[in-house]
Design a protein around this nucleic acid. Sequence first.
DNA 1: TAGATTGTTAATCGATTAACAATC
DNA 2: TAGATTGTTAATCGATTAACAATC
Lengths: 216, 216
Amino acid sequence: MKTDVSNLPLPTIRRFPIYLRRIQDCIAREEAFISGAILADVLGLDHVVVRKDLAMTGVVGTPRLGFPTKELAAAITKALGWDSPTQAALVGVGHLGGALLGHKGFLDHNLEISLAFDANPDLVGTQQHGVTILPVADLETVVRRLHIILAILTVPNAAAQTCADKLVAGGVRGIWNFTGVSLNVPATVKVQHEDLVSGLAVLSHMIATNPPPDAP
Amino acid sequence: MKTDVSNLPLPTIRRFPIYLRRIQDCIAREEAFISGAILADVLGLDHVVVRKDLAMTGVVGTPRLGFPTKELAAAITKALGWDSPTQAALVGVGHLGGALLGHKGFLDHNLEISLAFDANPDLVGTQQHGVTILPVADLETVVRRLHIILAILTVPNAAAQTCADKLVAGGVRGIWNFTGVSLNVPATVKVQHEDLVSGLAVLSHMIATNPPPDAP
DNA sequence: TAGATTGTTAATCGATTAACAATC
DNA sequence: TAGATTGTTAATCGATTAACAATC
């Protein structure tokens, strides 16, 4: 029985939040059990993938019943580190940064963006979505003093590496990177590069190479 | 010599825009050649991965010189379908949708968001970033009439499937899906699911399971 | 020539898929 | 019991890594 949650396959981790959302729906409907087969069906996944993923949580299912919803939700939440609140700092309050700041959905995953920084003196001191914008000059100091471990980077490409350096110096342990820059950080700091352009590339490539159905 | 650009590995396609950006920098500096080794070094990738990816474009390199920058840029641009302009429709002008609408960087990839739709009557008729917001009720009709093939979906989860259905009915060939919903569409329509929460899951998991360096 | 760089072929690794056994 | 569902083990597939040959 494998229950070492610290070394899960990346694809499994990516699927965890998708399962979690459905399982929480079940809990809200007071359903005590969910079968992997049904979950797979609803999500358009292969049922054996789902069972394998669920097995990774260490939760054991019961034949004919399925998996206990509450246990499963708790195990996934734990595996993702979403069982305790995390304070995050947003760096760069532009279009995208502002949107993330206003997106209250992260609270469902126990992530609160409690700090925001920007280089624009006109923005500094103003509030957006209830958060006062601080000067980037204070980034390292504030992050260190408040023991912020997670930062969201939404600055222009040109500023990305400099800001990342300050975040690392301030003791951040993870950077959610929305810039187009491959950041250079020590191995102890984890970077999740959310490169929207990569996603666009995949989609445009598929559209460009798969001819429309009415073509020869 | 493999030059069939219609069936490339997904990881390769994701890396293409990253190469492209660097190669365009080289072209701007009037460098006629770029070596795969240098490219790999700058991007923090393995040099053999880079060479293999570049080989997929069909462009041949010259030992001691590297790959011709202009040819390479043209080949990658072509493979991604970024060699001709694409008009896109944005569906859902909330925080995230508005941010994407304002993000002019997509123009670099020949993608123009020329239409925007929203369900909120207060928004309909107003302009954002130079685009007039149309009612979702007209979604299918307008998309069909203007032969829009790519849509960006940034509506609340509850509205996602309904809007996707309208887009499909309108003849869209690709949906860039920023909602949390796994869309159900015919196989002829490609969906690129940009689930931010999956990315957050990966990052939080890594932070939660890799103890900080000063811990035992 | 010597050496940097591309190109190719085989080995490894990880994840998915398939087949079947175990259990309530 | 019968049958739905979980659980396990082996096979396949795709991508990365490693080793080496070819070329300017």
